[in-house]
Nucleic acid binder design. Structure first.
Lengths: 194, 194
DNA sequence: ATTATTTCTTAAGATACCTTATGGGTTACC
DNA sequence: GGTAACCCATAAGGTATCTTAAGAAATAAT
């Protein structure tokens, strides 16, 4: 039961009682995505919070030249949503796409607001979760402004060792903000260093 | 009364009742910082959430070569804290320093937890606040991985027009992740373009 | 299994950005 | 009001990273 994964995930933050669990379980629905299938596309309103049970999604933006820039990968026990579009209910600038066959749980805007309003603990948990994600993002900004591409790549490999094998290097390059060609030359150096 | 600024700020998110206002006001204390004074230094535990009433702070990390990298500027009606150190109560990797004479309000860890526990609305507000800051940070990451230094500088000027005049370009360069010399040559180009 | 598509590697030439250095202009501090 | 510290501009040469191209290897689709 996928919903059990979500409940277990939440309990790591703060234990839930039966009522909270049931209310949570009642408002998430299962959805599977094939490889390359879009969870969200630019121009659409992001209507769901998506929790990944298995598989992997990528969030990316497309620039004026049509190039994709990966903002984030979302694998097991992690959340994908365009927060800005989700809360404002305005069209998103982003895409979310499955890079592997992915099993997910989704909750609608109105249902999440219901949970926030009626369960302090769930509201609380989502604050703690996003604070952690904020810290990670802040570290990434620091990396971006202070480190070379090689250092950022080494950091990525260390931080996400499981993603390394599952993602093509072209996708990692986009995430790091370098070209795949340059990542390839960096990669060679790292092998000799490790 | 500085605390009125904070209450007004909160009310923009979600109205507070009298009890909430009073509880909030009772737990923040005023503190002023001179230019260059440190709010937090590396190695110390970050024991406060700091809300800026007037003035401006910078948060930065120092790398192995002793170079400072500005992660964030925090001006009026904004929050400065090392979230990671604050919640874990472990030594911080960051500095927070006043770049202008700054008036601030601070709340201790235990007092904030008290507010979270006893006032759902305050917990809720902090979630909404950090979600907005998360969105901003995510946009900054996107800029970093997809835009040239010149584009990032133009974006900064547009997004923070008031900070532009208050901060030396050396500080903005550090925030953008470029050298002051290079920012200087970029700056010239922007003048001709606008 | 075969074909089509995507991915990886390599290399040469171009560009963005950095380093170092220097001088002049501001701003802070006593 | 004077001195010291900081800040800005400019330039020459160096390094990191990008662009384009093309072939080989791996992976996905039929």
């Amino acid at each position: 039961m996928p919903i059990q994964n979500l409940i277990a995930y939440f309990k790591d933050y703060f234990p839930l009682n039966t009522k909270e669990e049931n209310d949570l379980a009642a408002r998430f629905s299962e959805r599977d995505f094939k490889r390359r299938q879009l969870v969200l596309q630019q121009g659409d309103v992001c209507r769901h919070f998506t929790f990944v049970i298995s598989g992997c999604l990528k969030m990316y933006a497309v620039d004026q030249n049509g190039k994709e820039h990966n903002i984030q990968f979302v694998a097991e026990n992690d959340w994908a949503t365009d927060l800005s579009s989700f809360y404002s209910e305005k069209p998103s600038q982003l895409y979310i796409e499955a890079v592997e066959p992915t099993a997910a749980l989704q909750i609608k805007h109105s249902d999440l607001l219901y949970l926030y309003t009626n369960h302090h603990k769930i509201d609380h948990n989502f604050r703690v979760i996003i604070e952690q994600k904020y810290i990670d993002l802040q570290n990434r900004v620091l990396q971006n402004i202070s480190s070379s591409a090689e250092e950022r790549y080494a950091y990525f490999l260390k931080q996400y060792p499981n993603l390394t094998n599952r993602l093509p290097n072209t996708q990692i390059a986009s995430y790091l903000g370098v070209t795949p060609e340059f990542l390839s030359t960096i990669g060679k150096n790292l092998i000799y260093k490790s």
